[in-house]
Structures are given as C-alpha cells and as structure tokens.
Design a binder for these strands. Sequence first.
DNA 1: AACAGTATTTAGACCAAATCCAAACCAAGA
DNA 2: TCTTGGTTTGGATTTGGTCTAAATACTGTT
Lengths: 147, 147
Amino acid sequence: MSNLPERLRERGWRLTAQRRVVAEVLTGDHVHLTADEVHTRAARQLPEIGRATVYNVLNDLVALGEIREVSTDDRAKRYDPNAHHPHHHLICTGCGTIRDVHPTADPATTLTPPERLGFTITTTEITFRGLCPTCRPLRPQPSPSGV
Amino acid sequence: MSNLPERLRERGWRLTAQRRVVAEVLTGDHVHLTADEVHTRAARQLPEIGRATVYNVLNDLVALGEIREVSTDDRAKRYDPNAHHPHHHLICTGCGTIRDVHPTADPATTLTPPERLGFTITTTEITFRGLCPTCRPLRPQPSPSGV
DNA sequence: AACAGTATTTAGACCAAATCCAAACCAAGA
DNA sequence: TCTTGGTTTGGATTTGGTCTAAATACTGTT
C-alpha cells in the first residue's frame, strides 16, 4: 500500500497545493472532522483556499475511496481518513466524541444468508453509542428520591 | 404493549388530527420516510397540515422513543416507526432502498471490554450495505477488457 | 354554555450545510 | 509560447431544518 499522494497520482489525480493540504489535515487516528473544520485547518496552511474547493476535494476523495463519510447525529457530515483500515465507531452521547474501534470479532457474519433478503452485502458499519469515561458520572446517581 | 395512540395518551399527549395522521403515515415494516415524504403523505389525508407541524411531531415522537432517526447517505434524516422492535438496516447502494433486518446473533457483544475504551455502551446500530436483488446484475459483468 | 388557561398549529422568516455556476486560473504537452 | 482541459474560486442557490409570534383548538371549571 503506497502513500496517499502516490496512489492518487497513479489514478491521474493532479496533486495541487489545495489537495495536498486537505489530505494532510485529514491524517491520523480518531480524526473525524466536518467539512468546515477541514476548511478552517486547511486555511491555516493555505489561507486562499476556498470553501467550495474543500467540498470538491472531500467529495473526490470519498468517490476515490480514500476517505469515508461518517454520519453522526450532527447535521454536518464528518470525514474519516482511515478508509483502508476497516473499523467502527464509538460515539459519546454526552460530548459527541468519536473514537475508532477495531473489534476482533468480525461482525460481517452476524447476518445469516436467509436474513440477507437476497442482498449482496459489501460493507458493514457499526456505531456504538454510550458515555465516554469523561462524561460518565464517576459515582452512582445521587439518589432516586433526590429529584 | 398497547398501541401507539394509547401509549401516547398515557403520557399526556393530546392526540390531535395532525398527530394521528403523522402516526398513521409512519406505520409498517421497512418504512423509512424523510420528513418531507411524511409531510406529503400526511397532506393527502389532511391538506392543511403544515411543514413545521410535521417536524414538531416527528421530533416529539423521537423524544418519546416511539420512532427512531436513521441516518443514510442522503442529506435528509429518515424516520423508522419500529422503535420497539430493535433491528438493523440493510441499504441498497444501487437504489437506496432500506430494509429492516433482525439478526439472530446479537452483535452488541462484538466489542470486548478492552476494546470499549472505557465507554459505557448503551446502543449498537448496524448498517449493512450492498446490492438488493433488483439492482444486482443477473449475470457476471461483461468482461474486464471491455472497458 | 361561557370562560380561562394551556397546548398545539401555522406561515413565513431564518439558519446552516452543501451544491451549483461561470469566470478565472494554472499546469503540462505540442 | 500557445493551447487545452483540469482545477479553483466567490457568490448565488438549493436544501433540510429550526424558530417565532400570532392564531387556533383543547381541557377543566364554574
């Protein structure tokens, strides 16, 4: 697996400054930025970059399969750079934090053939929701009568 | 488990014509309408119903736990009336059809404690994607060289 | 039946996220 | 250098959804 810029060039993608900066911003684990956040960060390195460009590049990268859209409860889509290392998401219902998880058990098998209704399944996407360590109350709730 | 109108009345919900119509539209299996679709269908029975009302009712029903939001790739949220019978979704990447599935194997257990990163998990949501029987090509693709 | 008080509905203004568009720009090959 | 087509851009536009203030419809009380 070559690195991102190379892979893209091989597919006839011109590596412009804008595209490089967006790709750079979208690097790392547990990175799930909105288009707006990507734009803000990209603009720190390349102040002239336009919003439309960011949207264009993000959509191109999604189409090329290099990044993935993850839909949370927010209105804005988020982008996950880790498209080549399949994983799932753990979302904190308190603060909205999203973390990547790589379950050891493969969940693709949870659906038996008869349950598949004739579908040919290609991807399985799991979203776990709950409270992260920071948002979870450290002790049991005060007392049920204390309301 | 009583039926919807009764359950709602028990919780002090006034069952108005608008609310009844929205609830009626949202009935059945494999029903996953957008707010706009709900409005269109509701208006067939009750032409005066307003957009804002539909949004109000939908949000109320979600808050009451009677229906669930499902996020697809579309921009618009969809609403699933089957909140009391936990299930997952099968989405066709060809035509966008969404079908309910009830895997016999519960995948909520796929995450071992160390994998949970300290989260307290409350819900697990799985989205299977692939081609439905209608969209799947009946025979193998023409030939790789035919591009 | 009339009333008061509260819920509910409504149109339309408003907002945020994303897309569209046409003009400007730029990079690479002839 | 010139040309060509991919790329970028600001601004207008679309879309999905929320908010607000006024009108309307219930409910319980007398």
